[in-house]
Amino acid sequence: MVVLSPEAVRSIFVDGLRNAHALENQALSIMNRQLDRLEKYPEVAQRLRSHVDETNGQIGRLEQILESLNESHSAMKDLGASFMGNMAALGHTVAGDEILKNSFANFAFENYEIAAYKSLIEIAQRGGFQNAIPLLEASLKEEQAMAAWMDQNLSAVTDRYLQLSIAGADASH
């Protein structure tokens, strides 16, 4: 195992926290854009609204950790990630199966966030940032719960999409 200086670990940790902050802003952009269009999938809309609240809490926890390190989030990273989130969500609006594409992308995105939090927890443990660990673990649990919900509900969303499509309705959102 390579031994890193405390300064190097701190720098990596801060960069990871800033990246996670930007990632959560991207998630908000994606979810809010989807919520604007979800008409025929109220259970998905309800869960996304709940996860928007969780995501705002995750952003707050990341800011709390950064502040404890006398650091702040990166406005440029946040802006870029939010823009990319909006573009990704817009890209699916032209698809006839928008709800399915969004469901696949959301599931993948949640698992990406899970990996990011697991990595941050590992860095926090290695760097001795013990106060950050419970905050990161709380966010990890929320992301895992959201990914599990999406996994458990993909079949129902797909079934609803099929039913609406077969009936000749616009099933895309």
Rank of each mutant, 00 (worst) to 15 (best):
I99T: 03
V2W: 11
D78Y: 03
A156T: 07
W149L: 01
T158W: 06
S172N: 09
A20P: 09
V94C: 03
T93W: 05
S68I: 00
R37S: 02
A20I: 06
I121K: 09
Q144M: 14
E24R: 04
E63N: 15
S11H: 11
F13W: 10
A145D: 15
L23V: 07
P134F: 11
S5M: 11
N25T: 07
S155P: 00
M76Q: 13
G91Q: 09
M84L: 14
N106G: 05
N25S: 07
E137N: 14
L162R: 14
V44P: 00
S74R: 01
I133A: 08
A95Q: 05
M87D: 03
L66Q: 06
I99L: 02
D53N: 13
Q130F: 02
A22S: 13
K101Y: 06
S165V: 07
Y117K: 09
A105P: 00
A27M: 01
A105V: 01
L4Y: 15
R18E: 08
A45K: 14
P42K: 08
A167Y: 03
G127H: 11
V52L: 05
A132R: 05
H73Y: 13
S165D: 07
S68H: 09
A45R: 12
H21P: 02
F109I: 02
D151H: 13
L162P: 00
A27L: 07
L164M: 13
